[in-house]
């Protein structure tokens, strides 16, 4: 087996003094797609923000090892330059900054300014936009300002295509998408996946996994992964819901005893 791309060990994360992740373990190898499913409040978005390095998400213990190097202390921009990408659940608007200029700045930082020639960048951007069904005039529009939910998600995947990450984290990328948009976005992701790349798909619902086929499915409850399995687990969860798992592993449940 190849070396892990990402290895999360006993990760504890607190937000504004509140402990959200309580000992999360996960290993992603190159070429693998992992889905993280879980009910609201289980810590899904905390995991994605903590992996990307949001300053408000404090790692209180545990380690995150990416390509053999611990990264839990690195700022977000450094992680991005090393190939980690987060497709946001709620992308932020940046008024006055055009999508084209923003992406040029991003690509220059990630690939190195010397490796980016404006004309080639332009061509590549237009091609990627076409693939994702994004109109060309969006390059001149301000980042996420006045975009519909579906447009924002497509633009997230556009950014992923341009930044070519080694590890992509998709945080609730299916929310706010109708079925056609979902298909376009999922196809966009599938086109980008390479054998060297790892993908973490974070989702509440199973439906995205019909389009992006995971190799592994994990269930997150109360800040821990409580169950792991193959793609069939997602269908199982869809059928029986999270209630039973919440009763067993939820915050109100009895503490997990070692060896139990």
């Amino acid at each position: 087996m190849s070396d892990p791309l990402l290895k999360i060990e006993n990760l504890h994360v607190a937000v504004e003094g509140k402990q959200i992740l309580r000992g999360l373990n996960l290993t992603v190898r190159p070429g693998e797609i992992h889905a993280i499913m879980g009910p609201n409040g289980s810590g899904k978005s905390t995991l994605s923000n903590a992996l990307m390095g949001h300053p408000s998400y404090l790692v209180t213990s545990g380690t995150v090892t990416y390509k053999g190097q611990q990264i839990q202390e690195l700022p977000a921009d450094e992680r991005a330059r090393q190939g980690i990408f987060l497709a946001f659940q709620y992308p932020t608007a940046i008024p006055g900054v055009s999508l084209g200029n923003f992406l040029l700045a991003a690509v220059r930082n990630v690939r190195g300014a010397a490796n980016v020639k404006p004309l080639e960048f332009r061509k590549e951007l237009m091609a990627c936009m076409k693939d994702l069904g994004i109109r060309q005039d969006f390059a001149g529009r301000y980042v996420n300002e006045g975009f519909s939910g579906g447009e924002k998600k497509r633009v997230e995947i556009l950014q992923m295509a341009m930044l070519r990450p080694s590890l992509a984290i998709l945080d609730e990328t299916d929310s706010g998408l109708d079925i056609d948009a979902l298909r376009i976005v999922a196809e966009g992701v599938n086109r980008q996946v390479t054998p060297e790349m790892g993908v973490l798909v974070i989702t509440h619902y199973q439906r995205l996994l019909d389009y992006i086929k995971p190799d592994f499915v994990h269930v997150l409850v109360s800040g821990r992964i409580v169950q792991s399995g193959g793609p069939e687990l997602a269908l199982e969860l869809e059928a029986r819901g999270y209630d039973e798992l919440l009763r067993t592993h939820g915050a109100d449940a009895a503490p997990v005893v070692a060896g139990a």
């Binding site: 390095g53 300053p55 700022p75 921009d77 991005a80 987060l86 940046i94």
Partner: peptide, 18 residues
């Protein structure tokens, strides 16, 4: 805006550039 800052940093822009 911290959210804007994080969004830009997550795309590889150093703090000052963001």
């Amino acid at each position: 805006d911290q959210d804007q800052q994080f969004y830009l940093q997550s795309r590889g822009l150093p703090d000052a550039d963001a």
